[in-house]
Write a protein that binds this DNA or RNA. Structure first.
Lengths: 158, 158
DNA sequence: TATTGTTATACTCTATAACTATA
DNA sequence: TATAGTTATAGAGTATAACAATA
């Protein structure tokens, strides 16, 4: 049974137990992401980037000519939401949007020099911030967490 | 450098690289959580629970008499947002809300018999769903991922 | 003066439906 | 007919500010 732990404990004033929740991977993932996100945000907001715009910019830098729909699929975002991010990145001259000549429905997204610069700088800054997460962890543990997260992610049906 | 990988690659049609993003723990955590959440949701929506209500109910079951403010702190949610969840749980007769006799500003939250039943059932169901995430993982790896996530979480300043 | 619960509100991210232009 | 991009809109989750009651 899940809830028979300390049902009789009178009134946990300031030290409640979340043992049941902590036995769920989803809960632990959310808590850990909640720890990591503010650090990542601190690194990217210096460049007026949020998580979606940072991710999109990074993919565009790494994959010149990528189409919005491919971007959406890769980031598991809706195309409709990608458009807004693309619009912003373009208006800030971080990327350019060109019609594909082979398929005129598509756009080819490419980072500008400024975009690559902002990307590289923000990547460096987010990296620096994230370093704090690994305090007291060995190189082996560090590699292990990435390996295990990949393994879990690849268990997805889709 | 972060973005010097395949800048010359012409146009990645359907297989873009997100190697840079994957080197960030935050990105991997988000992707993994994105894999885990639908499964957890599938387990709890059967009982008309979402992540916040499921978490609150679990903490109340495990900590009878817990106050909303303690709940908020433990789940790292705002008190103002806890209220809405509490309201719903109470209106569904899953919990009761009683004024504390020692501090009349506080409420003491307790799960009803129905609440404990719904909790236990949903915990069981979410557990069953999450099992799928661990496909192909050894018991050791399973324990390791929890250990490493805890370690990272505890690196938080707060 | 500080804290607890509360309300109202705004913001971010995400999801859905419908449209257009191209294929 | 199917797909890419787009628009508008709604929803969930979260964050902020102000307030009344109580300490």
């Amino acid at each position: 049974m899940a809830s028979t732990a300390n049902q009789q404990t009178p009134c946990p004033e300031e030290t409640p137990s979340d043992a049941v929740l902590r036995s769920f991977l989803g809960y632990m993932l959310k808590r850990t992401y909640l720890t990591a996100r503010p650090l990542a945000l601190a690194g990217m907001t210096q460049f007026d980037l949020r998580v979606p715009s940072f991710s999109c910019l990074s993919l565009i830098v790494e994959n010149p000519g990528i189409a919005p729909s491919v971007l959406a699929e890769c980031l598991k975002m809706e195309r409709s939401n990608i458009v807004v991010v693309i619009d912003e990145l373009e208006s800030r001259d971080l990327i350019i949007r060109q019609r594909s000549k082979t398929d005129r429905r598509r756009y080819e997204l490419t980072a500008t020099v400024l975009g690559r610069h902002v990307h590289d700088q923000s990547v460096e800054e987010v990296r620096r911030q994230e370093e704090r997460l690994f305090a007291g962890m060995t190189e082996e543990e560090r590699a292990q967490i990435f390996k295990l997260l990949s393994k879990i992610e690849s268990s997805a049906p889709d």
